[in-house]
């Protein structure tokens, strides 16, 4: 790996999040300077800032892109207790010439009474839905029923998680076999308050999200979680950033066909890495979930590659023969780390 280029970000305060759009041609950054910037990749591969505007009246924690099927849409969340949805307007021709784009605020979601800590769009097969979670422990799911009118968002679900929420992740699986599912993590540092990762699933009958699992073994503060792309597997893989990096496998147990109750899962930890030595703050999978990246207190970003993980199902079946010759790229990692001048 090598540093291909460095981009002068020009934010006046800490950057909190960088988010790539679906095709990797655009990038959004957000900062404690209360602004969001949008960057576009030019033909020559340079990143040019095409929009920069004040979005909130507090630090902006996260910024995220909607799927391009819904147009050019961003969502941001902030310390100012709100989340906002932004849409790019195809501008005047002279704006285009100057390489600028216009973003206008379509809605401000003001239901939270505390800092909104994470914002995520739901998988696109569910429609245009936006989820927020907040420090007061509430997950909110909003829906834009008319994708051509992004100023109309209705609050569809309000789920109280009882613990201060720090992060959410949707299960990207669009398989009919899997009901819509998301995981929420809590940064509550009190071990006594129990498991810090809760899994919720949509129940067709009650038309509500119900808690189906709490990962009881994760009792330390959780800072980030990420479901892996599904790859057509029957089970789900969830990465967690807590005092270490953990990867869980959630295998739905076979249900009685008549049963309408919540799904049950066989939960299994498949990896645990303490190489960051202390708190881990972010985890994220690449497109095909062959690499997991994590960032921690050691100032490193570490990339994890697990052949075992990717092929977990097969390996499980053939367990007796695992672990001899084939260690090829079994698990190797690549560090990125700071150089201190």
């Amino acid at each position: 790996m090598f540093v291909a280029r460095s981009i002068a970000a020009d934010h006046k305060d800490l950057i909190h999040d960088v988010s790539y759009d679906f095709h990797g041609r655009r990038m959004a950054t957000c900062s404690s300077d209360q602004s969001v910037k949008v960057w576009d990749k030019s033909e020559s591969g340079e990143w040019l800032c095409t929009a920069s505007w004040k979005t909130h009246s507090g630090s902006v924690w996260r910024v995220t892109w909607a799927h391009p099927e819904f147009g050019q849409v961003l969502a941001s969340c902030s310390f100012d207790r709100t989340a906002a949805v932004w849409e790019e307007i195809v501008g005047e021709s002279n704006d285009k010439q100057r390489g600028l784009s216009h973003w206008i605020k379509r809605t401000t979601l003001v239901d939270s009474r505390t800092s909104v800590t994470d914002v995520k769009f739901a998988p696109k097969h569910m429609g245009l839905m936006l989820t927020t979670c907040s420090a007061d422990g509430v997950v909110r799911i909003y829906e834009a029923p008319d994708v051509m009118n992004l100023s109309q968002w209705s609050l569809q679900h309000e789920i109280s998680c009882k613990l201060s929420c720090s992060c959410i992740s949707w299960n990207p699986s669009s398989s009919r076999a899997h009901p819509s599912m998301f995981a929420v993590g809590s940064d509550d540092s009190n071990i006594a308050s129990g498991g810090k990762v809760q899994i919720y699933e949509y129940n067709e009958n009650t038309r509500k999200y119900g808690k189906v699992e709490t990962l009881m073994t994760v009792t330390d503060a959780v800072h980030d979680i990420a479901f892996a792309p599904n790859l057509g597997r029957s089970f789900h893989v969830l990465a967690i950033a807590t005092k270490d990096v953990r990867i869980f496998k959630l295998a739905p147990m076979r249900k009685e066909s008549s049963s309408t109750g919540p799904s049950k899962f066989e939960v299994q930890i498949v990896a645990q890495f303490d190489n960051h030595n202390s708190q881990v703050w972010r985890v994220s999978w690449n497109i095909t979930s062959t690499l997991l990246a994590s960032s921690g207190d050691d100032g490193c970003v570490r990339l994890w590659k697990g052949k075992k993980l990717v092929h977990l199902q097969q390996e499980h079946r053939r367990l007796p023969s695992v672990g001899n010759r084939l260690q090829c790229s079994d698990r190797f990692l690549i560090f990125l780390r700071w150089v201190h001048d």
Binding site: S6, I7, H11, D13, L14, I15, W47
Partner: peptide, 11 residues
């Protein structure tokens, strides 16, 4: 709050 982050690096 802190001082600004000057660079984003593409690796």
């Amino acid at each position: 709050t802190g001082s600004g982050s000057p660079f984003i690096h593409e690796v």
